[in-house]
Design a protein around this nucleic acid. Structure first.
Length: 591
DNA sequence: GAGTTTGAAACT
DNA sequence: CAGTTTCAAACTC
């Protein structure tokens, strides 16, 4: 990934050799190539949308599932990641590439490999990430990998494990002597997460993200952390799908915050922030949906328990083959830690799982789609309401139907997901703190952080939601495109972030403090926008929104986009799927 | 930990 | 498509 040696003077400062500059220069070549294939997976609502089981040769584990689109995304992600980030052992590198010696990928030495190799080689003469951003690792570890079911899904159960158990212990900053080993472990985890399901669901990803994996204080770690973190939200999915949605989720609150405080006065710092944002966003792509119910509970459990922390579903009659089962719904297999009875949601019953899944999908193509989706149509946001007040773009795909909970308890999926109710909801007496359907359907969650019940916060287990003051003047131009949605790693909209979007004072970690400090002066506005634009183009799939219509007439539309003015309705009131839907988690076997 | 409540999913 | 049943998570005690 050598970059053309261009000389750019930013604010009088030569950035020619800066990592950011190099990174930026490498952006454009990528975008046109990546988005095309991804779009293919979103062709239509028909079941065909779901990529058939990819019997590729990348992985021999039957627990792995693949999705071509994911590969594309991975590539995009990789290319989106500055070499500096990858320098440490290429941890972020999808194993796929490294293992792509099956001949299916053309030349044996992929770009990635070369990049990795190069990075490794440069390792010694490249400033250590830790040195550059001493605070980053810790932040990443604790803030992004705090959940802990990771073990369950992140790392293959069979893998060598001493690997951090899923027990409710917090991630430790134990250094990994062998970064390669760590990289392998992470790769496995990432790989599994990415391949097992086309789109791991939020819960699933959350689990992955959990802290079972202890990232080493390195840049690579950062990347992985981001992945893991992102995965929290991710709904199973194929990267293919909601890239944007993923971005939203990518709001990882932590990464940038203080990292660059020390050098925030430089253009590079700003650029780095952008890069990180991008990374996070990109990584977030991997995650998406994940319904959060379990995860939260798990978190709570994890909070102070050992193995119990990994408990998952408790299905007794569904055999874990129905959407009642959160594991199944999330696109993941049940684990031993589950308390289910007569479980069929296991690799050994792969055929059954796949068949069942198909059946369900045939009934409802988006059955496995992320429960919370975000409309990232910038045009809508811009045209609709003040950009700073449009968090309403994030809503539950179907909306809730609460009658007694007033949408203030986790029975309500909207509330549980941390999003406001929308016009798609049929709830009664809605009091959703994240946005009542009768008030914020299209206006966004006009709520203040304090409005969000402490209950909810508690329910989310602190580590899921971090309440951090929002920066009063974070340039929207910088943050919006990269992380349009203040969604936590859980795919949940963060209260403070919603506030943030409203232009309220305060800040979120997700907002790079460096930006705040720097304002937009370090990188000219136009340039910054350019960067963001490139990034978005790179990441975005032609089809980034999910407007779906349930085959069985159930409401399955994007609240936000479903505005009558924006989306044609069918006579029966259903809305057309204008764009497409991503391939959702699928138990596509990967042989 | 058992029992209850709740609303999504599944079924009719 | 509406009503009912089933189910498992969320919640309460």
């Amino acid at each position: 990934m050598e970059t053309p040696q261009k000389t750019i003077i930013q604010n009088g400062t030569p950035l020619k050799n800066s990592p950011v500059f190099n990174y930026i220069n490498n952006l454009s070549p990528i975008k046109p190539v990546r988005s095309i294939p991804i779009a293919q997976t979103f062709g239509s609502l028909s079941p065909s949308v779901y990529t058939p089981p990819h019997k590729g040769s990348r992985s021999k584990s039957h627990t792995y599932f693949s999705d071509p689109s994911k590969e594309l995304v991975e590539e995009a992600l990789l290319e989106t990641i500055p070499p500096e980030i990858l320098k440490n052992d290429c941890i972020s590198t999808p194993p796929r590439r490294a293992a792509a010696n099956d001949g299916s990928c053309g030349d044996g030495e992929t770009d990635l490999q070369r990049m990795c190799d190069g990075n490794v080689k440069r390792k010694s003469d490249t400033p250590d990430w830790e040195t550059q951003f001493p605070e980053t690792p810790e932040m990443l570890i604790y803030d992004t990998l705090n959940d802990s079911e990771a073990d369950r899904c992140f790392l293959p159960a069979s893998s060598d494990s001493k690997r951090r158990s899923c027990g409710g212990t917090k991630p430790r900053l134990e250094p990994v002597s062998n970064s390669k080993e760590l990289a392998d472990a992470l790769h496995r985890g990432v790989r599994r997460r990415l391949l097992d399901f086309e789109m791991p669901d939020k819960q699933t990803l959350e689990k992955y993200s959990s802290s079972c994996v202890v990232p080493p204080p390195s840049t690579g770690l950062h990347l992985n952390a981001a992945f893991a973190m992102s995965s929290k939200d991710t709904n199973k999915y194929s990267l293919s799908g909601n890239i944007k949605v993923g971005l939203q989720n990518s709001t990882t609150p932590v990464l940038h915050s203080h990292d660059f405080a020390g050098e925030n006065e430089t253009g590079e710092a700003a650029g780095q922030s952008v890069v990180e944002e991008v990374q996070k966003s990109s990584l977030a792509l991997v995650e998406m949906n994940q319904s959060s119910p379990k995860k939260k509970r798990l978190k709570s459990e994890q909070a102070g328990e050992g193995e119990s922390a990994c408990k998952r579903c408790h299905c007794r009659k569904s055999k874990c083959l129905k959407l009642y089962c959160e594991c199944f719904a999330a696109g993941v297999y049940c684990l031993e830690s589950c308390s289910c009875v007569d479980c069929y949601n296991k690799p050994i019953h792969e055929d059954t799982v796949l068949a069942t899944r198909k059946q369900i999908e045939s009934r409802n193509p988006i059955a496995f789609a992320p429960k919370v989706i975000r409309n990232t149509d910038s045009s809508i946001m811009e045209a609709g309401v003040d950009a700073s007040k449009t968090p309403a773009s994030v809503r539950h795909k179907r909306g809730c139907n609460c009658r007694k909970s007033n949408c203030v308890k986790k029975y309500c999926e909207c509330y549980q997901s941390g999003v406001g109710c929308s016009i798609n909801c049929r709830c009664e007496g809605c009091k959703n703190a994240f946005g009542r359907k009768d008030v914020s359907s299209f206006v966004g969650m006009d709520i203040k952080q304090d409005d969000v019940s402490e209950t909810w916060k508690t329910q989310q287990n602190n580590d899921l939601v971090r309440y951090v003051p929002l920066p009063p003047s974070t340039p929207m131009v910088l943050r919006q495109p990269l992380a349009q949605l203040p969604i936590s790693s859980n795919n949940m909209l963060l209260p403070q972030q919603s506030q943030h979007l409203h232009g309220a004072s305060g800040s979120s970690l997700y907002e790079s403090q460096s930006f705040r400090k720097q304002g937009t002066s370090l990188l000219s506005h136009s340039r910054t926008e350019k960067i963001i634009e490139d990034i978005e183009n790179l990441i975005q799939s032609p089809i980034t929104n999910i407007n779906a219509v349930s085959p069985n007439s159930k409401r399955v539309s994007l609240p936000h986009l479903d505005s009558p003015e924006l989306t044609p309705r069918r006579r029966n009131g259903e809305r057309k799927l204008l764009l497409s839907i991503p391939t959702f988690p699928s138990f596509t076997p990967h042989h």
